[in-house]
C-alpha cells in the first residue's frame, strides 16, 4: 500500500506537505468540525510548506495558468465562475 498521504507536485515539498497535512487533519477533525476553532492553528507547518510550493510553482511554469484560473473562478467566490453564462447553464436542471 505504501504511504497513504499524497505527495506534493514538487518532490522536495512532499515531506513538508505531510507534516502540514498531519497537523491540519487533526485540527480539522478535533477542532474545526466540533466548532471549537476560530483560527487555523498549523501556521508554522503551513509557512514552511507553502514557501516550498510557491517557489516550485514558478519553476514548473504553471503559475500563469493558475493566475488565469483564479481570475475565472476566484477564491473569494468559493471557486464559482464569474462568467454569468456558465452559471446560468450550471443552474439548469
Amino acid at each position: 500500500m505504501g504511504n497513504s498521504m499524497s505527495a506534493s507536485f514538487a518532490p522536495e515539498c512532499t515531506e513538508l506537505k505531510k507534516t502540514y497535512d498531519s497537523c491540519f487533519n487533526e485540527w480539522y477533525s478535533e477542532k474545526f468540525l466540533k466548532g471549537k476553532s476560530v483560527e487555523n492553528e498549523c501556521t508554522k507547518e503551513w509557512y514552511a510548506y507553502i514557501g516550498c510550493v510557491n517557489e516550485n510553482l514558478k519553476k514548473k511554469s504553471i503559475q500563469s495558468a493558475l493566475d488565469d484560473a483564479r481570475k475565472e473562478a476566484p477564491f473569494e467566490s468559493g471557486g464559482e465562475l464569474v462568467n454569468a453564462n456558465a452559471n446560468a447553464n450550471a443552474n439548469k436542471k
Binding site: S6, Y20, G35, E39, Y49, I50, F75
Partner: peptide, 19 residues
C-alpha cells in the same frame, strides 16, 4: 491523481467556513 497540494486556505465566519 499522483499529487495534492494546498495553495491557499482561509478560515472565515468565526470558524464556521473553511475555504
Amino acid at each position: 491523481v499522483v499529487g495534492v497540494d494546498v495553495l491557499r486556505r482561509e478560515l472565515k465566519d468565526n470558524g464556521n467556513v473553511l475555504v
